[in-house]
Write a protein that binds this DNA or RNA. Structure first.
Length: 105
DNA sequence: AGCGTGACGCGTG
DNA sequence: ACACGCGCCACGC
C-alpha cells in the first residue's frame, strides 16, 4: 500500500454531497501536516477513475486550480453543484454545512 | 542518485 | 485583504 493509495482510499470514502479539505484527507490517511501530498496525489488522478477527486477542496472552502486542467477548473464546481453543494458569491463553499464528518470509529 | 515538479496549510506582518 | 516564508514528500526522468 503506497502513500498515494492510502490517500485515494480516503477520498473514495467521501460521500456524495459532501466535501473534504486536503488537510483533512491527509489527517485521515495518517499523513499529519502533509496536505500538499494530497494535492500531489490528486494531480495524478485520472478523471475516469472511481476516485471522487472533485470532492476535495482547500481549507478556505475554495476549489483549488491546477494548470493541468488548462482553465477547466469550473468542471469541478459543476460536479459539486450537481451533487447539491452551493457556492457563495465568493465562489466558496460553506464548510460548516458541507464538510464531511467521518464516522468516528 | 539526484533533480524538478507539483490540486496545501498555517503563521506572521 | 495580500504577500511572504516554510514544512512537507512521492514520482518520473
Amino acid at each position: 500500500m503506497s502513500t498515494y493509495n492510502r490517500i485515494y482510499a480516503i477520498v473514495r470514502q467521501i460521500p456524495i454531497g459532501k466535501v473534504a479539505t486536503y488537510g483533512q484527507v491527509a489527517e485521515l490517511a495518517e499523513l499529519y501536516g502533509k496536505a500538499r501530498l494530497v494535492g500531489y496525489a490528486l494531480y495524478r488522478v485520472d478523471k475516469n477513475s472511481d476516485i471522487p477527486w472533485h470532492r476535495v477542496i482547500n481549507a478556505k472552502g475554495e476549489v483549488s486550480e491546477s494548470p493541468l486542467r488548462l482553465g477547466s477548473d469550473y468542471v469541478q464546481r459543476s460536479l459539486l453543484e450537481a451533487e447539491g453543494i452551493e457556492f457563495n458569491a465568493e465562489a466558496k463553499i460553506d464548510l460548516r454545512k458541507y464538510q464531511w464528518q467521518p464516522t468516528i470509529l
